[in-house]
């Protein structure tokens, strides 16, 4: 199994998806920090209106504007943007029509939410359109403003629909300004500039969803990037002890002898508890291994990210970024 590849290093748009709750937002943020390490400028984008980035970086909600939110080791910078579909629609309409004050009123009435409900594809086209604009934007020196863009994307169940702009456009007007814009989005998303990473946990359901998503991405001619295996628990037992212990066989006498050697004199009850904990640990390690084995069928570069017992705060994001850098992310 390889980790980060040369090909992934060339990508400029890193889309991060995965089953709900597996750690998309956390990993996207850590990935942005990792990519920024060494002096690059990276933009981290969210699109679901949840202010997940602001929460993670422990700051006030992000406006619909790019802001610098973190420094990365070696002079790098992470900027962030929360794209709001309504604001994007108004911005978009304003490019072609003069709505004047009506825009705000329409928004208050919920008319815009209505328009995006009427044509669910519209929302996705608007969001990916804005992402493309950020990826392609150049500074006054003619170089890309951002070295890389990381997108905290919708979960695996919806991500292919989200990225399959061609399909979405089939439901929308066949002519007009939005058509022209979406052609550029399609080009970007299907090019080598884009990689769609999948965050997985080593549990049966998330692994299956990951494999399904890989197939679905392939089917839509989108490029799966890496599998980011999140929340991996450390395997404490010597490898050969795992299968036996998982079956409930732990050599109690050996454990006791070892404990005594370390000066621990434990009662029978505590010892039994330790044995039970060991069996549960072994079952878990074994099922992690099985899940890993299943994941390897995807044949994608794989990076393991450890479980952090104390949860994720800003400092922990830097820790996770270091793990990614050590795995070759750049």
């Amino acid at each position: 199994m390889t980790s980060w590849t040369e090909e992934l290093t060339r990508a400029r748009l890193h889309v991060v998806s995965g089953k709900g709750g597996t750690g998309k937002t956390t990993i996207a943020a850590a990935l942005a920090l990792a990519l920024a390490t060494g002096g690059r400028r990276v933009l981290l984008i969210e699109v679901e209106g949840r202010q997940g980035i602001a929460q993670l970086f422990d700051r006030a909600p992000l406006p619909y504007a790019e802001e610098r939110i973190a420094a990365a080791p070696g002079g790098g910078e992470v900027h962030a943007l929360a794209i709001d579909a309504e604001a994007a629609l108004l911005e978009y309409l304003a490019m072609f029509y003069n709505l004047g004050f009506a825009g705000r009123t329409l928004r208050k009435m919920g008319a815009i939410e209505f328009a995006t409900t009427l044509a669910p594809g519209l929302r996705d086209v608007l969001l990916t359109g804005k992402v493309k604009e950020c990826v392609n934007r150049t500074g006054s020196d003619g170089r890309h403003l951002y070295d890389a863009v990381v997108l905290d994307a919708p979960p695996t169940g919806r991500v292919v629909k989200f990225l399959d702009v061609t399909k979405a456009m089939a439901d929308l007007a066949k002519v007009g300004p939005i058509k022209g814009q979406s052609d550029g989005v399609v080009r970007l998303l299907h090019s080598g500039d884009t990689a769609v990473h999948l965050v997985a946990l080593l549990e049966e359901m998330p692994v299956r969803e990951t494999l399904d998503a890989v197939a679905e991405l392939d089917g839509a001619d989108l490029r799966p990037g890496a599998v980011l295996v999140n929340r991996v628990h450390p395997a404490r037992l010597p490898a050969h002890s795992v299968p036996v212990a998982a079956e409930g066989r732990v050599e109690e006498s050996r454990v006791r002898a070892g404990l005594t050697a370390a000066g621990l004199d434990l009662d029978e009850f505590t010892l039994e508890g330790l044995v039970d904990e060991t069996v549960e640990h072994a079952i878990r390690v074994q099922s992690q291994q099985e899940a890993m084995e299943l994941l390897s069928h995807s044949d994608l570069p794989t990076v393991e990210v450890p479980e952090l017992t104390d949860g994720v705060d800003v400092a922990a994001l830097y820790e996770l970024a270091e793990v990614l850098v050590a795995a070759g992310v750049r």
């Binding site: 037992l237 002898a257 050697a261 370390a262």
Partner: peptide
């Protein structure tokens, strides 16, 4: 499940065992 054994004590003992390299199973436990 083994409530009477504090984590710090367990870790200190594991470190001891690792140094001697004698009882890898007990250290892992």
């Amino acid at each position: 499940l083994a409530g009477d054994l504090p984590a710090a004590k367990a870790l200190a003992a594991a470190d001891d065992l690792d140094r001697s390299g004698e009882a890898p199973l007990a250290a892992a436990v």
